[in-house]
Design a protein around this nucleic acid. Structure first.
Lengths: 168, 168
DNA sequence: CGCACAGACCAAATTATATTCGGACTTCGT
DNA sequence: ACGAAGTCCGAATATAATTTGGTCTGTGCG
């Protein structure tokens, strides 16, 4: 099956940092021929290791200057419907991300809105109103930093895995 | 200045959904010539409306199957150093995203780890150990849905902005 | 051992895309 | 109405993506 070697990892890594990196340039960076590189990228997509590619816009420029994280708790008896609820929420236009969580909160919903008013309205009518919801807590996002954009060439992800701490 | 019209919005929107969409195809979708489309995309990047492009990997395939959101609170007197702390954290290899928050928590840190052991170790040594930190709370992520992937053609972002609720 | 096979790779040819460039069109101010 | 500025398009060119065929390597088995 799709066992990922060192080169595949470098490919994924480079594409995380620069999603529109041309195949030719990518091939050069990881040290293989463009044709081979293309084959690998397609295999990575087919295997699911490379899920998707997305632009990261400045939401404010798009008229959505207010971002927030909404922590949602479902009623205990509604936990079974957690997937149904999430499936509905993820299709709402303002929703950027949904994280299913363990712990006190059932999930976090990352949203972008045109104003604090719209945010309040959105949370009230789209999130809280659902009968499965026990409570919501809205936290404004002041800034958002993206990890892969701040990572050096040197720090490979291979190193991360190697550094597994002991489970004493 | 970079005032964004209807077509620019559609461009950004399409690229959010498909980051590697070829310029020719993009031009076709938004109904302009490829040369014009290229010019607009570059203008959007220059103006900052299009920040960046990233691949979305399956972190488990990359050997990092454990994802978590860590809520961090700084000591009251350390709030001034919030940016310093964040700048350090964002460069750590396991960190995917950092959200600066208003509210009780100062920020949320989205991380990917090779094991629960590494997660515990990472939070303990890289996040909690800092003298500015008052407390951390770690929540495992069971699943992560991406909004733009689940949005239909029909639902334009223009509609979001229009639907500004009244501030009565 | 030596052959047949599968898998991975590369280079060159082909196809398609990205990019540049010049000119046409619109808008706006005088 | 005229000219300047801005925006757009189409065709030409540069560059990249993709296909193809063949080489190399390792493997299993006669």
């Amino acid at each position: 099956m799709g066992t990922i070697d060192e080169i595949d990892e470098r490919i994924v890594w480079e594409l995380c940092r620069e999603g529109r990196l041309p195949n030719k340039e990518l091939a050069e960076r990881v040290g293989i021929a463009p044709s081979t590189c293309l084959m690998r990228v397609r295999a990575l997509q087919a295997s699911g290791a490379l899920r998707s590619f997305h632009a990261q816009p400045d939401w404010a420029s798009m008229g959505l200057p207010i971002e927030a994280i909404v922590a949602v708790r479902l009623k205990a008896q509604a936990r079974a419907q957690i997937k149904t609820y999430a499936q509905r929420v993820i299709t709402l236009p303002n929703v950027l991300n949904v994280f299913f969580l363990g712990g006190a909160d059932d999930f976090l919903i990352h949203v972008a809105c045109s104003s604090t008013g719209q945010l309040r309205d959105f949370v009230a009518t789209e999130l809280s109103l659902d009968s499965s919801v026990a409570s919501t807590q809205t936290n404004i996002i002041f800034d958002h930093l993206i990890g892969v954009e701040h990572m050096d060439e040197g720090s490979t992800w291979g190193r991360i895995r190697d550094a597994v701490p002991g489970e004493h």
